[in-house]
C-alpha cells in the first residue's frame, strides 16, 4: 500500500516537472524566434538572453524529471519525442510572438507571475525543485526589471505603440487565467508541500498588474471564461506547427546522436 502511494507521488512529481519544463521550452522557443529580428541590435541581444534563461530552465526541469523516471530517457527524449497531445504547457506560452508589443506584454505578465510563483516554489519541500526555483527566480527578477519600463514606454509612447499594447492585451486576456488553474495531481502535490497553490497567487498578481497598468491609464481586464486545457494537452493550433519545426531533425532521423 505504501509503495503505491509513493508511486503516485513520484508520478505526480514527474508530471509536474515535465509540465514546468514544457512551459519553459515552448516559451523559450517563441522568444528565440526574435533572434535577428529585434527592433535594434541591443534589444536583439537582450531578448536572446531571456530566451536562453528559459532554455536553461527547461533543461533543469526535464533533467530532473528524467532522473526520477529512471528509464534511460533524456531531456531530449522528453522535448523532442512527444506529440502535441502529450505536451502540457499552459497555452499562453505557445502563442506566436506577434509584434514587439505582444511579446513584451506577455513577457511582463509572465515576469510578474514567475516572480511570485518561483518565490513560493523556492519553499518547496523537494530540495531539487526548490533549488531550480531559486535560480530561476533571480532571472525573472531581472526580466521584470526589463519588461516593466518597456510596457510603460510603449503604452505612453505614440498612439500606435499604445494601440498595439491594447490590442495585445485584448489577445492575451483570454489566456492569463490559466496560469492559476490546477489539475488534481497538482493539488495533491500542493497538499504535500511540493508544488505551490496557484490560486493563492492570483490575487496578488492581479493587484500588481492592474496597479502597474493603471499608471499608464490602462484598465486590466480578463475575460470571464478563460481558455484552458494546456495541462491536459488541449492546445491552440499553433503548438503543432511549433513542434513540427522544433522536432524536425529528431523525427526525420530517429535515434541518432547529434
Amino acid at each position: 500500500m505504501k509503495d503505491e502511494i509513493n508511486c503516485t507521488e513520484l508520478e505526480n512529481l514527474t508530471r509536474f516537472l515535465i509540465a514546468l519544463g514544457d512551459d519553459s521550452v515552448i516559451y523559450s522557443h517563441r522568444l528565440s524566434e526574435w533572434c535577428s529580428n529585434g527592433p535594434y541590435l541591443e534589444e536583439d541581444i537582450a531578448l536572446t538572453n531571456v530566451a536562453l534563461d528559459y532554455t536553461g530552465r527547461a533543461r533543469l526541469f526535464y533533467q530532473y524529471a528524467a532522473k526520477l523516471e529512471d528509464n534511460g530517457k533524456t531531456e531530449d527524449d522528453i522535448a523532442y519525442l512527444r506529440t502535441e497531445r502529450e505536451f502540457t504547457n499552459l497555452l499562453i506560452h505557445e502563442l506566436p510572438i506577434n509584434d514587439f508589443a505582444f511579446t513584451m506584454l506577455r513577457q511582463y505578465f509572465m515576469d510578474v507571475f514567475y516572480c511570485l510563483y518561483l518565490q513560493a516554489l523556492s519553499g518547496s519541500k523537494d530540495e531539487s525543485l526548490s533549488a531550480i526555483a531559486t535560480k530561476a527566480l533571480k532571472e525573472s527578477h531581472y526580466h521584470l526589471k526589463r519588461s516593466e519600463p518597456w510596457i510603460k514606454l510603449l503604452a505612453q509612447g505614440t498612439d500606435e505603440s499604445r494601440q498595439r499594447i491594447l490590442r495585445a492585451q485584448a489577445e492575451l486576456e483570454n489566456f492569463t487565467g490559466e496560469l492559476f488553474l490546477m489539475e488534481t495531481w497538482e493539488v495533491q502535490l500542493v497538499d504535500q508541500g511540493i508544488a505551490v497553490d496557484r490560486s493563492l497567487i492570483q490575487l496578488e498578481w492581479e493587484r500588481q498588474v492592474s496597479a502597474f497598468l493603471a499608471e499608464s491609464n490602462i484598465q486590466f481586464t480578463q475575460t470571464q471564461l478563460q481558455v484552458s486545457g494546456g495541462r491536459c494537452g488541449i492546445h491552440t493550433e499553433h503548438l503543432g506547427h511549433l513542434l513540427s519545426e522544433m522536432q524536425y531533425l529528431q523525427r526525420t532521423y530517429p535515434g541518432m546522436k547529434w
Binding site: Y40, I45, A46, N49, K145
Partner: peptide
Amino acid sequence: SLHAENSQQALMYARDVYTR
C-alpha cells in the same frame, strides 16, 4: 559603447552586451 533610451536601459544592455 552602445545605444539606449536612458541610463537604466543602458545599464541593462551593457550587462547583456559586454558581460555575457
